[in-house]
């Protein structure tokens, strides 16, 4: 096997992995604020791409204007989801909440199918389709956008959680909800915030990947599961570990497809997921009983 071939696998894996990382962090943020896995996370990824398309084609907006509008709409639907489906629950046990998020994801997917049909759609790339040579490998300008936007979001995320009052309050909820409530933190508000941040991040992931992989009403399922897998590798941390988890997953998938067989591409992610859940449920890097922030 040649070096440029290996480099191509790595670069392809990195850009897919960055998407998984973004989605995975969305899972972790909600998990840390509420203790539940939000299985509707993938649907916000789908909404990002599909709503961008709506603004582009029906709204006739230019791409740079359609993207913020789409993020706003997806974030608003994340807020609505929390208000209408999560908050009113009388017995918010984890199992009830998780089932509700699964129900919510089926509902959102169904509505999207009725609204946009079953066709696949393409979003134009942000800056052209001329391939760029890196060593012996080639990437597209869109790959640079994916890596750049992911880095930016992760940095902003870090800043929010460690340098702002509301971010610190959210971390406090993750450590101990009851104690956070006792010192005057409005835990329910933090839960709402967590849904806002995750749906915004999910929709951005869906938008930046859409020019490469296309988008359709049902892309949320697979992307959501891969993001979940990244979060599990990262031990449900909303920081570096999940990012590494996403990147590792992306690269393993790409190497697996290139060196073993593409038939196993998706299986690789789920084998890792199952192995980790059985053997190291605290994540690849976490110590047992570590604090999850």
């Amino acid at each position: 096997m040649q070096f440029d071939q290996l480099l191509q696998y790595l670069l392809s894996g990195l850009s897919t992995g960055a998407i998984y990382a973004l989605i995975g962090i969305g899972f972790s943020i909600i998990y840390n604020a509420t203790g539940i896995i939000n299985f509707a996370q993938g649907e916000f990824v789908m909404l990002g791409g599909m709503v961008t398309l709506l603004f582009l084609e029906t709204g006739k907006l230019p791409l740079w204007a359609a993207i913020p509008c789409a993020v706003a709409v997806s974030t608003a639907s994340g807020m609505l989801f929390e208000r209408l489906a999560i908050r009113p629950l009388r017995q918010p046990t984890p199992i009830n909440l998780v089932i509700i998020t699964i129900g919510g994801s089926i509902l959102i997917r169904g509505l999207a199918m009725l609204l946009w049909g079953k066709d696949t759609h393409a979003i134009p790339p942000f800056s052209g389709e001329e391939p760029l040579a890196v060593g012996g490998a080639t990437i597209l300008p869109q790959h640079l956008w994916i890596l750049g936007v992911t880095l930016l979001i992760i940095a902003a995320n870090k800043y929010y959680f460690y340098h702002t009052i509301s971010g610190k309050a959210m971390r406090a909820c993750a450590y101990n909800r009851r104690a956070a409530g006792l010192v005057g933190i409005d835990v329910r508000r933090m839960v709402l915030f967590s849904f806002i941040i995750s749906s915004a991040m999910g929709s951005v992931a869906g938008i930046i990947v859409a020019p490469l992989t296309m988008t359709a009403y049902d892309v949320g399922i697979m992307l959501g599961l891969k993001g979940f897998c990244a979060a599990i590798i990262g031990g449900m941390s909303s920081g570096g570990a999940t990012v590494v988890g996403g990147l590792v997953l992306g690269i393993l998938e790409s190497l697996g497809a290139g060196l073993i067989s593409s038939g196993y591409k998706d299986a690789i992610a789920f084998i890792i997921l199952l192995l980790l859940l059985f053997i190291r449920p605290q994540g690849l890097f976490g110590k047992a009983q570590s604090e999850r922030v």
Binding site: Q5, E129, A216, S254, G258
Partner: peptide, 30 residues
């Protein structure tokens, strides 16, 4: 699909036949 295509490129075939329905083939074309 870059991983699969990279692998195919490595064995230097004369042509590629892609049998499928959208969106897969469109991704492969890109």
């Amino acid at each position: 699909m870059t991983a699969q295509l990279t692998k195919i490129r490595g064995i230097k075939p004369d042509a590629i036949i892609c049998w499928g329905t959208n969106p897969g083939p469109a991704v492969i074309a890109k």
